[in-house]
Design a protein around this nucleic acid. Structure first.
Length: 582
DNA sequence: GCCGTTTTCGGCCCGACTGTTTTCAGTCG
């Protein structure tokens, strides 16, 4: 049987949590399953492997009971308790439970009292007015339910907006509000501020002499489609693209508390508050209640919030409950990393031109890179067997190499490199002859075909490519597309090991729908000593700027400038290439 | 179910909102 992926294990734990919740078990057990599922999903190493080695309880939130259940899952393909509870509740009930406004209690009563076992049965019952007959349910619940179903909710996770688009909206809104006379501080909070892969809604927090003016300005913005009923100090709006926007205008003396609270993440805040309780402090968005004095400490800035709790200020990108609190402790923490910035980047090692599927010439890309202040740029058009855009034959590539070298000779203080993004074929070979690759300055190898291979085959394919002495780096190593395509089946742990062993760099591709490696894997790779690249993969001049998103992922991966290879000047980067070390 | 600078037992973040209710349960972030 194929080894279970972390995603599959996490799904099994979430399912059992759902079933326990329907069964009415105590809530802390359900929370424990959700926490464990999250830990497994975020793990950079194979959890199945850890279970087999008897090390699963080293993972945060996995104890002896869960270890036993995971063993059963790996050995028999299922958890006995899951099997038992599945026979007790119809599968459609979990979807009912996950509808907005519903939960385990309501789903259970609908099942027990009306026999509702699916979304279809629920829709029928609501249409016939049977829901409102139940005690505790009324006409409003029924109306809202029909609306939710009409909106296409199916009890699954709601689609999220990619960060570039969401942050673009948020920055427009915050910028407009900051320009209102009397507006003081205006900040974006939430997952957009943490630069997460995707965002559900936008939170904006402000201080202002005239809060009403901010609310009115928000309502009048062209990108706003509708407003909920605005209060004096808060409003909820919806953009034409369907994004929810929450604005809160708060008192200056608790701005830090609110900003910290609304930036999250939930996991970070829970960990922060649990640690605070042990020290007699209770954290909320309104302040920090000190048990000893009975006083509530209000903080104008986030720095004061963290300092009051005994921590250095923590960059939002790190607030995911992944060890940042321990590192930030003022009394003996290891210290937080000095995170890489866009300004640290000295070169871009992955871009395309009209030779393959780009929209600009070599010269245009080079000039644009120089205008951005970069010191080097590698032209890496797609290779001979590429299926879309123009395929570049070996001869064409060599001709392009000559042109690039000629142009490079005319560029003062800039290194224009000729490279390629060569395809990794299913057998792990690449699609140019070695003699051609040897003529180049730089080679990225990427998978663009046969995504459906089994994990061991795909891993072997990737490792074989890394064994190639002329492959300097692997592009978008897991192939995921955020919100639309899962990564291909890949043992990333093995890929990282092979990268470290062979001296192959791993890319964090900056495309807003890729950001691949992701934050978890990029962190693991850097910790294993693998040099990380942050590349634009630009297909047009303007796209060179999207390294912003790659840097965002790198920061969420705790990366310092030193761990990112292309923060170095060319003279230091050049000898790091595998071809220069042979 | 997990976990330990009070604890191997007894805790486990904090508050808002909604809809249904005469005081609160359930859900959400």
């Amino acid at each position: 049987m194929a080894p279970l992926t972390n995603a599959a294990i996490a799904q099994a734990l979430d399912e059992l949590g759902d079933l326990y919740e329907l069964d009415g078990t105590e809530s802390y057990r359900v929370i424990a399953y959700r926490n464990a599922a999250r830990t497994v999903r975020d793990a950079a190493v194979s959890v199945a492997g850890m279970v087999r080695e008897g090390r699963a309880t080293e993972l945060n939130g996995i104890g002896r009971t869960l270890d036993t259940k995971l063993r059963a899952l790996l050995e028999d393909g299922d958890i006995p308790k899951s099997r038992e509870l599945r026979s007790k509740f119809p599968p459609g009930l979990i979807a009912v439970m996950h509808l907005p406004g519903f939960g385990p209690k309501r789903a259970r009563r609908l099942y027990d009292e009306l026999g509702i076992d699916s979304l279809e049965a629920l829709r029928d019952a609501a249409g016939e007015g049977r829901i409102r007959s139940l005690r505790g349910f009324g006409a409003k619940v029924e109306d809202n339910l029909l609306k939710v179903l009409a909106d296409g909710h199916d009890g699954g996770p709601q689609p999220r907006i990619l960060l570039p688009r969401a942050l673009g909206l948020a920055e427009q809104i915050a910028g407009a509000l900051a320009g209102v006379p009397g507006a003081d501080r205006v900040e974006i909070a939430g997952s957009a501020r943490r630069l997460a892969d995707s965002v559900k809604d936008i939170d904006v927090i402000a201080t202002a002499a005239d809060p009403g003016a901010l609310v009115r300005t928000l309502a009048d913005l062209p990108l706003i489609e509708s407003m909920g009923t605005p209060g004096d100090n808060a409003a909820r709006a919806t953009t034409h693209t369907g994004m929810k926007v929450d604005l809160q205008v708060v008192e200056p003396d608790q701005f830090g508390n609110v900003l910290q609270h609304l930036t999250g993440s939930k996991a970070h805040n829970v960990a922060l508050r649990e640690a605070a309780v042990r020290r007699g402090l209770h954290v909320s968005q309104y302040g920090i209640l000190d048990d000893a004095s009975g006083e509530t400490i209000r903080c104008p800035t986030e720095e004061e919030v963290y300092a009051t709790l005994g921590y250095a200020w923590i960059p939002p990108e790190l607030r995911e409950g992944r060890g940042e609190l321990e590192a930030a402790r003022l009394d003996g923490g290891a210290g937080l990393p000095d995170l890489v910035t866009v300004e640290d980047l000295k070169g871009d090692l992955h871009c395309h031109t009209t030779a393959s599927d780009g929209r600009a010439s070599v010269e245009q890309m080079a000039r644009a890179a120089m205008d951005r202040g970069l010191e080097y740029l590698a032209i890496t058009d797609h290779s001979a067997s590429h299926g879309f855009g123009n395929a570049v034959s070996a001869d064409q590539l060599l001709e392009q190499a000559a042109r690039v070298r000629e142009l490079n000779a005319t560029l003062d203080g800039f290194e224009l490199l000729i490279g390629t993004e060569t395809n990794i074929l299913p057998d792990g070979s690449v699609d140019y002859p070695d003699e051609v690759l040897a003529e180049l300055d730089w080679v990225i190898a990427s998978v663009h075909t046969s995504f459906g291979m089994a994990q061991d085959e795909m891993t072997a394919r990737m490792v074989a490519a890394m064994e190639h002495p002329l492959v300097d780096a692997i592009g978008h190593p897991t192939g995921r597309k955020i919100e639309t395509r899962p990564p291909y089946a890949l043992d990333v742990e093995q890929v990282i090991d092979a990268a470290a062993r062979t001296g192959t760099m791993l890319e964090v591709n900056s495309a807003g729908d890729r950001r691949d490696l992701n934050d978890v894997y990029a962190r693991a790779a850097a910790e294993a000593g693998v040099p990380i690249l942050i590349d634009s993969d630009a297909h047009a001049v303007a796209n060179l700027a999207i390294v912003r998103w790659g840097v965002a992922t790198a920061r969420r991966a705790w990366l310092t400038a030193d761990q990112v290879a292309n923060t170095r000047p060319w003279a230091q980067f050049a000898p790091m290439r595998k071809r220069a070390r042979a």
